[in-house]
């Protein structure tokens, strides 16, 4: 009787330990861990910095042209 009990425990341990493995195969790999550990925010932050930098550059160019246009109007 005791042996059967042990066997049942052993058997169920094998079955249950292999279950997550089956579940993993079904799933499609995504960057879940990256997102759950919060690191995707770093990528978003970096991209936002790049965007802000480029936009500031763009605004400066825009202003420079505006100044030139004003100068041109005054001269003519």
């Amino acid at each position: 009787m005791k042996n059967i009990h042990k066997f049942f425990l052993f058997f169920s341990a094998i079955v249950f330990s292999s279950l997550p493995a089956f579940a993993e195969q079904e799933e499609i790999e995504m960057a879940d861990q990256l997102r759950s550990s919060g690191k995707i925010y770093i990528v978003v932050a970096v991209l936002l910095i790049i965007l802000i930098g480029l936009i500031i550059f763009m605004i400066q160019i825009d202003r420079k042209v505006s100044r030139l246009e004003k100068k041109n109007q005054n001269n003519s």
Binding site: I28, M30, A31, I40, V43, V44, L47, L48, L51, I55
Partner: peptide
Amino acid sequence: AILLLAYTIVAGFLTDVPRLAILHE
């Protein structure tokens, strides 16, 4: 343009997308 691009980057990375084979993220 600035607001929409900022929205694109933030929402583009943080919203849920369909889980598809091959494509993934």
